[in-house]
């Protein structure tokens, strides 16, 4: 078995006439942390939505954990071991923290199909443990997400991915709305993930953060992957040049 956890070949997504993603060839090794960078509308989130089965791709193939996959929906991707923090967070505003953490995978006292009785205490305790583990501080677990600050919401979404055992974590701009201290906290969580040897795809616009955290940088531009750079062999200026299109990488040799 290879040490490639995720691989895409010719991954393409068209929204009507919009070619949001075109022929994306991508590889991720076990334990590797990769950043995806690119301008607004470059196709980064679209790429994530195809991998996680949120949308159905126009063309291309995906391999995950050693086998070819065709996720019909996000639940299948999650069951296969992909945990995702989506850019739009995907939290239910009117539910409290434990309900959001366990949304779609509740713990039950008694299984009765759609009327299964929830184990609210166990979920609460697990939430408490998860928040402690990730260092996220939420003053009141029973508070609904609606009444929380943007940063707190983000922390809940991130704690959710870090709570469940997974083979791959994807975070789409996890620190976009955060203050300095909360950003540091999220970066701490990402370092923990690295220490556990779990692979991660991080989408970010923050150059400093990317250089601090990841091993490799993949640049998207106008729906295409235009650069694949080892962190220790590139510079911020070079990455910016690829993002803006000032520089192009004619042959995408497999690095690393």
């Amino acid at each position: 078995m290879s040490d490639i956890i995720l691989k895409t070949e010719g991954l393409t997504k068209h929204y009507g006439g919009v070619h949001a993603l075109q022929d994306a060839d991508f590889e991720l090794r076990r334990g590797e942390h990769v950043a995806i960078m690119g301008d607004n509308g470059a196709g980064k989130s679209t790429f994530v939505r195809q991998i996680t089965g949120v949308e159905q791709r126009t063309a291309g193939r995906i391999w995950f954990d050693g086998r070819e996959v065709n996720f019909a929906g996000p639940i299948e991707a999650r069951e296969a071991g992909i945990e995702t923090v989506f850019q739009n967070l995907a939290l239910a505003d009117d539910l409290d923290v434990p309900s959001n953490l366990f949304l779609g995978r509740e713990k039950f006292l008694l299984r009765l199909g759609p009327f299964s009785i929830l184990d609210r205490r166990a979920m609460r305790q697990a939430t408490q443990a998860a928040l402690t583990k990730t260092g996220v501080k939420i003053p009141n677990l029973s508070n609904t997400i609606r009444n929380m600050s943007g940063g707190q919401r983000q922390c809940v979404a991130i704690a959710r991915t870090a709570t469940f055992a997974s083979k791959l974590i994807i975070m789409d701009e996890p620190t976009a709305a955060l203050g300095v201290r909360e950003t540091a906290q999220v970066e701490g969580i990402i370092r923990q993930i690295k220490a556990h040897g779990e692979p991660l795809i991080l989408i970010s616009h923050n150059m400093r953060q990317v250089f601090d955290l990841v091993d490799r940088i993949v640049v998207f531009r106008r729906g295409r992957i235009v650069a694949n750079l080892r962190k220790d062999q590139t510079t911020g200026e070079e990455v910016v040049a690829y993002i803006t299109g000032a520089k192009t990488q004619p042959e995408l040799e497999v690095v690393a």
Partner: peptide, 14 residues
């Protein structure tokens, strides 16, 4: 409650 407050989130949560 989940579907009523954020249908997309509910769907993405499986």
């Amino acid at each position: 409650y989940a579907i009523g407050s954020n249908e997309d989130a509910a769907r993405m949560s499986g």
